[in-house]
């Protein structure tokens, strides 16, 4: 079998139809991951008893286990969990009709949150201690000081890693075809199932990912450059 350019071109075009959904989902996952990661980071920084130990084990487990194994665990245990919850709260949700999308969102946001918690921890640690002291000295509460003084400064440090994590999430979503979520790779797989031209479809999908990544990297570089410009202006 030789390489068929026409099939590849068709596959390339049809792959773009799922790009917006993939990008949106990656955005949602990253947002959830950052929120969870922030709580984990705060728990570990403030050394909350018991919880801090749990958080350490959680981060270690998430970082040491393949994403696909976690995805399978969540995907196959979700129907039972939903059934159990349904009985507990008396709501009638058919466990077999739970979309695989929920497993994807839960698994990915938990997985990425472990990595982001490290990033956020580092970013918060990079903010000078004097900033917190200054905030206390003018009568801020801890929550106020964190929200108004520390977080905005830490954000600058953390954003480059957020950008990388976003691209990482888009690439990692290629694993989600195993549970039936149609992203770019799954689309390629479906195409190749119709015409048995695997290599054309996969190369087309690879090209889509590649272009997407290059474009996103360009955009994120600009954002990072903009952040750096602000940094020199700040009094820090």
């Amino acid at each position: 079998m030789t390489f068929d350019l026409k099939t590849a071109a068709e596959a390339f075009l049809s792959n773009w139809t799922v790009v917006p959904a993939t990008m949106g989902l990656a955005m949602l996952i990253l947002a959830l991951a950052i929120i969870i990661g922030m709580f984990i980071a705060l728990i570990r920084i403030y050394r909350v008893p018991i919880l801090s130990k749990l958080a350490t084990v959680y981060v270690s487990f998430m970082r040491g286990t393949p994403l696909i194994v976690l995805l399978f665990i969540v995907y196959f245990s979700l129907p039972d969990t939903v059934e159990f919850m349904g009985k507990l709260f008396g709501t009638a949700v058919d466990p077999n009709k739970v979309s695989p999308l929920y497993s994807v969102i839960i698994t990915y946001s938990l997985y990425i949150s472990a990595f982001q918690s490290e990033n956020i921890k580092g970013a918060l640690a990079s903010v000078d201690k004097g900033q917190m002291e200054a905030a206390y000295s003018i009568g801020f509460k801890t929550s106020q000081a964190l929200m108004r003084i520390v977080f905005p400064q830490a954000l600058k440090v953390a954003v480059p890693n957020f950008c990388n994590a976003y691209i990482g999430a888009i690439k990692a979503l290629s694993l989600a075809f195993t549970v039936g979520f149609v992203d770019i790779l799954a689309k390629a797989k479906l195409n190749s199932a119709l015409n048995f031209r695997y290599i054309e479809s996969y190369l087309a999908a690879a090209l889509v990912y590649w272009m997407l990544c290059i474009a996103l990297t360009r955009i994120f570089r600009k954002i990072e450059a903009g952040l750096k410009k602000n940094e020199t202006l700040s009094t820090r």
Binding site: L175, L185, Y198, I199, Y202, A205, A206, Y209, L212
Partner: peptide, 10 residues
């Protein structure tokens, strides 16, 4: 720029 899964398939 591409996921390892797709590199595997390619």
């Amino acid at each position: 720029g591409t996921p390892i899964l797709i590199q595997l398939f390619v």
